[in-house]
Design a protein around this nucleic acid. Structure first.
Length: 804
DNA sequence: AGCACGCCGACT
DNA sequence: GTCGGCGTGCTC
């Protein structure tokens, strides 16, 4: 008898164990390790998805009272041993259940979709009065979702179970693969000689079209789609159909892959310059010096991408696979453009905006080894690339590489694990490396390659810092400084393109009463409301709730309710007022909701269809526009003073990246930074394009303030809708922690978060500094124990990206 | 997380 | 006697 040990689909730690099931004889041949199955679980024998982790032969009969596996859920092994190891690493490193880790390595779209169906067996008037659902079902099966829609509320399992036990209804669960492979019909010659005969002997003019089709197929004897035949022979589909009826053409269905990007780009190979070739050399040699992680610090425009392309080409020529991570969707169109242009169809693309079907197809092309290069966002680090030998993480400082949902993995850590698994090499690249990575490179943990010249010898843009306090003094109350307006005008006249950066969307960022000081806040969040012009509504950027615009102050009734603080919408309006002839594009969350909107705006601007691009940080990354000569940073101060140890680093990175959009072509670029803190050292390092001085300054601050990389931070977020309980238990836990960890760790808090309420949920935090990785699990257990059965949730994160 | 079991008080 | 509220323990 075969016994399968499985991990069940649960996110509950207490349930996360290995469970054994008997493999029914008829499934013995079909089931293997790394395949999903459906198992009955718990008292109700609820059907759960599970992954088979091992199979054993059992001669004894002591296992006879185990439950049986219901059915298989996959038709092939979907998690190979390498990926199982990877999931195991995730589970141990980041606190999560086995299945939460496994979900990362399977294409999420093939997670099974469940459909419960019920039917009526016996009518019962009393019960029908009590349970409304009984009035909506008949003697044939109907989907529970349909019934829920009809009665307008959820039906819980216990009700179903009760009615089932009483013999009133029957319940069945359908489990099916949610996504089916896309198929396409193809047509081919059944017998070439027969077709040849037909063509030669035909005298009938009305069959001329059929002969044309046959000649095409004789010439190129393979299967064609109907569209291909129509294009080649210039006929309609009726012609093909009649050939099928005559028995001259065969028809069959094949699986096709959906194509997420058109492949009409071409990116030719560029001769590498000396610095670039040296980078390739150092990286390829990194194996031999025993350190296979390399950090490339290359200024914007230094041609890091060419280095990546060279490395990938060399790797695939030797039969290896590669993964390239890019920060997020904003980078995808242009990066993919370059990679596809050079590497063609050998590359698969994975990112969050793919449809379920597209993602499934790409995943399978990779899994089956049909492609061996993957480019994608964070989760692409889990792509099951065959023979993986090279991982490139571009813009390595980007915070999007760290997941903010459980498991809170860091793609950089995962990458290090994967290359150690395969003895591969890892390349981190950035114009503004993260303080942590640069520190590691300086200390010899990583190899360091610095490319300090732009590849095409274009010079870095001149940066001017404008003191907005002076503007005020001179009577300019506008969002734009005099100089910025002048520069915009000049550049418009010269037909150059301009980018204006404003890291806030909406029209104005807060609404306030001049007479009583009232500030419009979200009902459910500790957040001021942003006014949006396009729908004339106030909106909360944290929960999405929208409000009507008040005409009078809700507090004192005064008419002097005013809008303060500018967002991208306002900038757009001001520009339209100042330069009515200029063509303006805006790129922010509001204008890019639709699929393909990013690409559209990007292409339009790149093709010169607009003069000015206004946008939030999504325009800061990667985008390569040759004709942009002016970049205006409307307000540099927004991110500078946030209570987060990374705010200086983030501001420097953002300004450097936005500045890097200027002067990438032949023309010299100029950057204007508007600020109320012109003496701030961070801004001045950015002005001088001086990452190394910035690093030296910031690393001292980190040391002084005892922040990473000198320590690790464990951030525990406590949330509850009950504020009093939250405060009470936060302090109670703190007392226990002080008793147990006083000598081991520095414990800060409890204190309310910067944003102390979101969606009616109050937020407090406790912060640990020190060797937190040693105590991570123990502290988790403590919180878990104390908060069990309390109305308080907690989440833990090491060196979080977001501490607000 | 569900669900069952069992102990105990309240109520026709 | 019996209903139901919730504390406890289990899930192959």
């Amino acid at each position: 008898m075969k016994i399968a040990s499985v991990a069940i689909n649960t996110n509950i730690k207490e349930l996360d164990k290995i469970y054994d099931y008997i493999v029914p004889v008829e499934l013995e041949e079909l089931i293997s390790r790394g395949m999903r199955v459906i198992v009955p679980f718990g008292n109700g024998n609820k059907k759960l998805e599970a992954v088979v982790l091992s199979l054993d032969e059992s001669e004894t009969y002591e296992n006879i009272n185990l439950k049986h596996i219901d059915e298989i859920a996959d038709y092939e092994i979907i998690i190979n041993d390498e990926m199982l190891d990877l999931a195991n690493y995730i589970k141990n490193k980041y606190i999560c259940t086995t299945y939460e880790a496994l979900k990362l390595v399977i294409p999420t779209t093939t997670i099974l979709k469940r459909d419960t169906q019920i039917k009526l067996i016996k009518r019962d008037k009393d019960l029908a009065n009590k349970y409304e659902l009984l009035n909506h079902i008949e003697e044939n099966f109907i989907s529970i979702k349909k019934v829920e829609n009809r009665i307008g509320k959820k039906i819980n399992n216990s009700t179903l179970l009760k009615l089932k036990k009483l013999g009133i209804i029957e319940v069945k669960e359908n489990i099916s693969n949610g996504i089916k492979a896309k198929t396409e019909k193809v047509y081919f010659l059944i017998n070439k000689d027969k077709a040849l005969d037909f063509v030669i002997n035909n005298k009938n003019k009305t069959l001329e079209k059929q002969c044309i089709v046959l000649r095409e197929l004789i010439k190129d004897d393979k299967a064609f789609t109907i569209k291909e035949i129509i294009d080649r022979a210039n006929v309609t589909k009726a012609v093909v159909k009649s050939l099928v009826e005559k028995g001259l053409l065969g028809e069959s269905t094949v699986e096709v892959y959906r194509n997420p990007f058109d492949r009409n780009y071409y990116h030719s190979k560029v001769e590498l310059n000396e610095e670039q070739s040296n980078a390739v050399k150092v990286i390829l040699e990194s194996h031999t010096n025993g350190n296979n992680v390399t950090l490339i610090h290359g200024v914007t425009g230094s041609g890091k991408t060419e280095v990546y392309l060279e490395l990938i080409e060399r790797m695939i020529n030797e039969g290896y696979g590669a993964i390239v991570l890019v920060p997020e969707i904003s980078l995808t169109p242009q990066t993919v453009e370059r990679f596809k242009g050079r590497l063609g169809d050998k590359i698969a693309v994975l990112h969050s905006r793919l449809s379920d079907g597209e993602r499934f197809d790409e995943w399978r092309r990779i899994y089956r080894g049909e492609v061996n290069i993957v480019i994608g966002a964070r989760s692409a680090i889990f792509a099951p690339v065959r023979n993986l030998k090279l991982i490139i993480i571009d813009e390595e400082h980007e915070h999007t590489y760290k997941s903010e949902i459980t498991p809170k993995y860091d793609a950089k850590d995962v990458a290090e694990f994967r290359i150690s698994q395969m003895d591969g090499i890892l390349v981190l690249g950035s114009a503004t490396p993260s303080i942590e990575s640069y520190y590691k490179a300086k200390n010899g943990q990583f190899n360091l390659v610095e490319i300090l010249n732009r590849a095409n010898n274009s010079i870095l843009p001149e940066v001017n810092i404008i003191d907005m306090r002076e503007e005020l003094k001179n009577g300019n109350r506008n969002i734009f400084s005099q100089q910025l307006v002048e520069e915009i005008r000049n550049n418009l006249e010269l037909k150059n393109q301009i980018i204006l950066f404003m890291n806030r969307r909406g029209y104005s960022t807060f609404v306030s009463c001049r007479s009583c000081g009232f500030v419009a806040k979200c009902r459910d969040c500790d957040v001021t409301l942003t006014y949006h012009y396009y729908n004339n509504r106030l909106s909360c950027h944290y929960c999405g709730r929208e409000y009507n615009v008040p005409n009078t102050c809700p507090k004192c009734g005064s008419k002097y309710i005013k809008y303060f603080g500018a967002g991208t919408e306002k900038i757009e309006e001001e520009i339209n007022n100042l330069f009515p002839a200029a063509k303006v594009l805006r790129m922010d969350m509001d204008t890019t909701r639709k699929k393909g909107a990013h690409e559209n705006i990007y292409k339009q601007f790149k093709n010169g269809e607009a003069d000015i691009l206004i946008g939030t940080q999504m325009i800061a990354k990667g985008m390569d526009f040759k004709n942009v000569t002016l970049v205006g940073i409307i307000s540099a101060d927004t991110s500078l003073n946030l209570p987060d140890y990374r705010s200086a680093e983030r501001t420097f990175q953002l300004i450097s990246q936005v500045s890097g959009r200027a002067g990438r072509g032949e023309k010299i670029g100029k950057v204007i930074i508007q600020t109320y803190e012109p003496d701030n050292p961070i801004l001045n390092f950015a002005k001088e394009h001086d990452f190394i001085s910035f690093y030296n300054y910031e690393i001292q601050m980190r040391r002084m303030m005892n922040n990473p990389p000198y320590t690790d931070i464990l951030y525990v977020l406590l949330t509850s809708s009950n504020e009093n309980e939250l405060i009470k238990f936060s302090h109670e836990i703190k007392n226990i922690l002080d008793r147990d960890y006083k000598n081991e760790l520095l414990i800060l808090g409890p204190s309310p978060c910067h944003i102390s309420k979101i969606k009616n949920t109050f937020r407090w935090n406790i912060i640990f500094k020190g060797d937190v990785k040693l105590y991570y699990n123990k502290i988790y257990e403590l919180f878990n124990y104390i908060l069990k059965n309390k109305p308080i949730a907690f989440s833990m994160d090491i060196n979080p990206v977001n501490m607000l």
